[in-house]
Write a protein that binds this DNA or RNA. Structure first.
Lengths: 106, 106
DNA sequence: TGATTATATAATTATTCAGTTATATTGTAA
DNA sequence: TTACAATATAACTGAATAATTATATAATCA
């Protein structure tokens, strides 16, 4: 059974519109910071700080490749979030639109 | 599909240790405010304010009977929380201990 | 090398929020 | 009616936090 402190900390990370949108976008595919900036229409430091929290909470993992940092979901050890994640509002359109942009990292 | 604003607001309610404990306790049975005060070892106004937020967020419903207000879970319209709720740390012992106390509402 | 790009960190600010204390409301019982 | 018990609300305080601005780090490229 889960410790209630850890669980409430994890859910606190989900209880923010920006982070929830990030996580939903990452359901589509891994994304780098500049893509997330584009998707969320917010500043780069804002995204970076949210990613740091999500990483600290074990919800995402990062992969540095060249000058980019790609983030992806890390949910293997959190089966209790599966159903919830399946219900997250889709960010598919926004993610696909980023691909077609004069993107930051192509 | 869910609106991300509503969903993050709901998850924000879950991202608090006190409220998460309350919700887990309510899985056992409906509870009145004074029982929750006993279970959580906190003040009555603190419980009342959390219950107001949970009620506003549609996570609990209340039933007034005599001078007591009983709260119970209201999850029928939130299937996406089912799996999560099943994984909440059990509060069974604490809830049962309340019954044996010189309780507030027997 | 120096310039540029991507990302992270630090410092700051304004807001949100949990918990406390004090008070009000509501219902019950003497 | 008055006294009491359960709950709610209001006001306040301190801590947490999201976002901004400015700066630092790190990698790539000319």
């Amino acid at each position: 059974m889960l410790a209630i402190d850890l669980l409430s900390d994890t859910l606190k990370l989900l209880g923010d519109k920006t982070r929830l949108t990030i996580l939903s976008a990452l359901k589509e595919r891994e994304l780098c910071v500049c893509e997330l900036v584009d998707i969320l229409q917010t500043s780069q430091p804002n995204v970076s700080q949210h990613m740091r929290k999500l990483k600290a909470g074990g919800l995402v993992k990062e992969a540095k490749r060249s000058q980019w940092v790609y983030y992806s979901l890390s949910m293997e050890d959190k089966p209790y979030l599966n159903e919830l994640f399946q219900h997250l509002p889709s960010q598919k359109e926004k993610v696909e639109r980023v691909c077609n942009n004069a993107g930051c990292c192509d």
